[in-house]
């Protein structure tokens, strides 16, 4: 452990360099303090980074920026793919519903047509099956005989 670390002061001969550079004693004190704080700050940062690295190195190497970029990229791809899939699904559902509607309409139209045809046939049947008036009876008899 150095003298600086033990006492929290700069190395003895460092004062010569600091004092030789300026005349302002207040600024010298400030400089002394700033350099000490700088050293302590770098030590703290380095210690934290070094110990973190040691822990991380035993497991998989982590790079949060890369991981975040990957996560963001994956999220974008997933959202765009899911958007496309959703749109396609929506379109398919709409097409199915339209087809069902069309089929129903066609069926209804066919039913209507069938009903009207049945009605027509029924009316024709009823018209044909009317009794021959009595005045026409001899003619009808003749037609039957001819056919025999």
């Amino acid at each position: 452990m150095s003298v600086w670390e033990k006492s929290g002061e700069l190395p003895d001969d460092a004062h010569d360099e600091l004092q030789s550079a300026g005349d302002d004693p207040i600024l010298d004190l400030k400089l002394d303090e700033a350099l000490r704080n700088f050293k302590l700050s770098v030590d703290a940062w380095s210690e934290a980074a070094y110990s973190t690295r040691r822990v991380v190195q035993s497991g998989p190497r982590r790079n949060w920026r890369r991981a975040a970029a990957w996560a963001l990229g994956c999220a974008l791809v997933a959202s765009s793919v899911s958007g496309v899939v959703y749109q396609r699904h929506e379109r398919q559902v709409a097409a199915k519903q339209a087809a069902v509607r069309l089929a129903e309409q066609q069926k209804r139209a066919a039913d209507l047509q069938a009903a009207s045809e049945e009605k027509l046939l029924a009316s024709v049947d009823s018209d044909i099956s009317q009794q021959i008036p009595s005045a026409m009876e001899p003619l009808a008899q003749m037609a039957e005989d001819d056919s025999k």
Partner: peptide, 25 residues
């Protein structure tokens, strides 16, 4: 980089001052 300060018993004001000095360096 200036955020890193040793965890001492200094006041918030002293910490701010130290942080500012470190930033200047």
């Amino acid at each position: 980089a200036s955020e890193w300060l040793p965890s001492g018993e200094s006041s918030a004001e002293q910490k701010m001052l130290a942080k500012e000095q470190v930033r200047h360096v």
